[in-house]
Design a protein around this nucleic acid. Sequence first.
DNA 1: TAATCTTGATTGATTAGTCAATCAAATACA
DNA 2: TGTATTTGATTGACTAATCAATCAAGATTA
Lengths: 214, 214
Amino acid sequence: MPPRDDQDYEAKRQQIIDGALQVFSSEGFEKATNKDIARAARINSPGLIYHYFKDKTDLFRQVVEERAPILQLVTHGDDFMESEPREVLTMFADSFVTMMDNRAGLAMFKMMLAESTRKPAVAAIFNKVGPWRGFNYLRRYLEHQMDLGRLRRIDPGAAVRCFMGPLVAYMIMREIFVQEDAQSLSPETMVTTTVDLFLYGLEVNRNHEGAGEG
Amino acid sequence: MPPRDDQDYEAKRQQIIDGALQVFSSEGFEKATNKDIARAARINSPGLIYHYFKDKTDLFRQVVEERAPILQLVTHGDDFMESEPREVLTMFADSFVTMMDNRAGLAMFKMMLAESTRKPAVAAIFNKVGPWRGFNYLRRYLEHQMDLGRLRRIDPGAAVRCFMGPLVAYMIMREIFVQEDAQSLSPETMVTTTVDLFLYGLEVNRNHEGAGEG
DNA sequence: TAATCTTGATTGATTAGTCAATCAAATACA
DNA sequence: TGTATTTGATTGACTAATCAATCAAGATTA
């Protein structure tokens, strides 16, 4: 059955999705009531949700599928494969930190952590667009740079985690456990420290003082 | 009214707490039903829970308060303040990884992530016994080592996150987003890589091949 | 008019929490 | 020692509330 007006229909659908994202991220899937979602989405009736979505689970799935891409880190195909590690890593780290400065981005990040913990199926969806994608891109890049001899060769999977881990931990500490010292530690400091330390430990042509690979 | 037998009473209380931890960690607070908890705790009636706990929230609070300490990392007072970074950091990292090899430890870790996201009060409790405690201990240690001149001086808060972050990220990727490559990357490799890379980047008397004091 | 859109009342299922009744281990007592 | 009494432990039926989902009726627009 064709809607009265495609644009109006889609706009209202998005409106409900936006409201649902806010409620799901702050309350969790089970505790989010249709009444809450209707209020957050500024529609007057919970019943209306069922005109646009099959049920609560369907709504949740669509929220995830349509809003999760905000969790995607910059991945420019192979454009940056040859670029300097410092440039690429800084860009990558900045991209992650910037994502969290955004209301919807932070909401998705929290929702990803909370919901994925209990629901493997949800975890798989998030993983596909978020962590796995970013990790894979970065791993390929690091492996290539190791091949080029610009970086010491270590386990690439471990290397990716050693780079992204500090940033993930920083965000969790700052946004979930509201640690004061994480508030005073600026994202910029965290980014530069992470990049510096990582490269200090991995760079071969070390302008800091010797010790390379065998 | 005093219980018939203190030991029996406490044993049964612990039995319910154990069951509740399993259900809370796999289902989440809201979706965990008293029936589930009773079954997991091997008691025959959901009603019995109310003989030992005021309500569901009280039960949850006691589960957290009595089982969260399992999340504590080794913190030996000031015993290790003077010890070599490699020794102390390896011990610390091992302690974290070992915690997750334990069924209850993993359950608590997941519960901490999932429940803390929505409930600042719960986050505060977890933070106190877990993250904050470990982070603070490690920060003091690293600052001391920087004072001694054994480590380069960088922002200590950032340093702690640079060290623990990779391990946290590794566990999240392995246990929540069930990434295949995290399965093949052993905890031991992750620990040694993390320690190596961190010290490679921070150690002053860089004896990365051979020994020597500066 | 004819279709979709919107509403809010309703339904049916679920669940946290209560409660009266029963059970069983101690203890008191003969 | 054997019986009665006390008291906490345990049960399962019950209640009151919540909430996802449905539905019929009315509003709106093409």
